[in-house]
Design a protein around this nucleic acid. Structure first.
Lengths: 207, 207
DNA sequence: TCAAAATTTGAATACCTGTTCAAATTCAGG
DNA sequence: CCTGAATTTGAACAGGTATTCAAATTTTGA
C-alpha cells in the first residue's frame, strides 16, 4: 500500500526515509532526462528510464503517478532554475551585459542540470491543465527577454531589430543545444556559453 | 492487389495515372508535414494524416509501405531543397554574402515548403539504415556551412570564432522556427529571413 | 458502355506500452 | 533481532495504433 506517489513531500515520514525518497526521485528525474535526450519523450518508455536505474518500471509508480508527471517534474525543475537566473540577472546594468549573462547562464543550465535534454521540445506532450502552467512560464521568460532587448534599443546599444524575432533566434540557438551537445564531446560548456553570448549579442550591437 | 506502395515511380503506369499518383503522394506528404508540426512524429497517428485528406488511414498504404517511409519522404524532399540551395549559393562571392543568402533561403524553405514542420527534430525516429543516409546529408550541410565561416575568418570578414559552435547557433535559430512559427501569424517569412541573416551574420562580422 | 486496373475501405490482427494490484522483498529503527 | 513500514516486483490488464488483407468501389482508357 501507501500509494503516496507524489504530493507534498509532507507528512509522517521519518527524516531519513524522506531524504532517501527525495534522492530516489532525483535519480529518476536524472535518468528520465538522459532518456528523453536520446529519444524524446514519446519514444522513451518507462522501461528505458527504469533500466538506467537497474529497476523495473513499476517501481517508478511509487514516486510519480504517471509518465507525464515525470516530464512535468523535469520541467518544474528546469523552470525553477530559469527563474532564479532571471532574478540574479538584475544586478547587471546594461542590456548587453544582462543579455550576455542570460545566454551564458541558460547554456550552463542546459548542459549541466538538464544534461542537454530537450525539455523545451516537449510542451505539446502535456494534458491541457499542466500545459497551461508550463506555457505561461515560458511566455513570461520570453517577454522578459524581449524587454531586455527593447531596453537595449532604446538606450542605443542595439540596432532597431524586431525584438520578438531576436528573442526567438537566441532561444533557438540555446534550445537546439539539446540536439547535438554531448557531455563527453569536445565542446566544453563554458566556452559554448561565451561563444553564443558574443555571437548573439554581437549581432544586435553592431550594424 | 498491386501493393506497389513506393519504389521507383517507374513502370507500366499510364502517364495520367502516374501523375495522379504522384499528386496524391505529394498531398499525403503535405498533410503529414502539417500533422508533424502540430504534434511531432510519434504523437501523430496515421489517422491524423488521413483525416486531413478525407480518407481512411489504410489508404495511405497504397502510397507508402509504412509510417516511417512517410517521414523519410518528407526528409528527402527537404534535403533536396537544401542541396539545391547549396548549389545556387556558389554565385555569391564573399563569406558574408553567402552566409546571409543561406540563412534567408533556409528560412524560406522552413516556412514555405515545410510549413515550419520540425523535420530536423525527428532524426532519431528512423531505423538505423535510413537514419544513416539522413544523418550523412545533414553532416554534409553542416560541414559546408562551417567552411563558409572558416573562409570568412581567413579573409578577415569574421572574428576568429569557433566555426563549429557558430554553425550550431545558426542552425539552432533556424530549426527552432518550427516551434513557434505559424503561417497565419504576424511575423512574415521574408522579414524573418532578413532579420535572422543580419543578426547571425552580424554577430560574426563585428567584435 | 464495359472490362480491367487502381484505389479505397472495413474488419481483423498483433504488438507495444502505460497502468493496476496484490504479493514478495527490503529496510528502518526501537 | 523483530516488526511494521517502505519499496520493489511480476503478472495481468487496457487502450491505442501500426499493419495486413480480401472485398467493395471508383477510375481508366478503349
Amino acid at each position: 500500500m501507501t500509494p503516496l506517489a507524489d504530493g507534498p513531500e509532507s507528512t509522517t515520514l521519518s527524516p531519513h526515509v524522506r531524504q532517501k525518497r527525495q534522492r530516489r526521485r532525483a535519480e529518476i528525474l536524472h535518468a528520465a532526462l538522459r532518456a528523453f535526450r536520446e529519444n524524446g519523450y514519446h519514444a522513451t518508455t518507462l522501461e528505458d528510464i527504469a533500466e538506467h536505474l537497474g529497476v523495473r518500471k513499476t517501481a517508478l509508480y511509487h514516486y510519480f503517478p504517471d509518465k507525464e508527471a515525470i516530464l512535468y517534474a523535469c520541467h518544474r525543475e528546469s523552470l525553477g532554475e530559469i527563474e532564479r537566473m532571471m532574478k540574479s540577472a538584475r544586478k547587471l546594468a546594461t542590456a548587453s551585459e544582462r543579455l550576455a549573462y542570460v545566454i551564458r547562464e541558460h547554456v550552463r543550465i542546459m548542459t549541466e542540470t538538464l544534461e542537454g535534454s530537450p525539455l523545451a521540445f516537449e510542451v505539446t506532450a502535456f494534458s491541457p491543465d499542466r500545459a497551461g502552467e508550463i506555457i505561461a512560464a515560458r511566455d513570461r521568460y520570453e517577454r522578459w527577454l524581449r524587454k531586455i532587448i527593447d531596453q537595449g534599443i532604446k538606450d542605443g546599444e542595439f540596432r532597431a531589430v524586431d525584438s520578438k524575432i531576436a528573442v526567438f533566434a537566441v532561444l533557438g540557438a540555446i534550445n537546439w543545444i539539446a540536439r547535438w551537445y554531448r557531455p563527453e564531446g569536445t565542446i566544453h560548456a563554458p566556452e559554448l556559453g561565451r561563444e553564443f553570448a558574443e555571437h548573439l549579442v554581437g549581432g544586435l550591437t553592431c550594424g
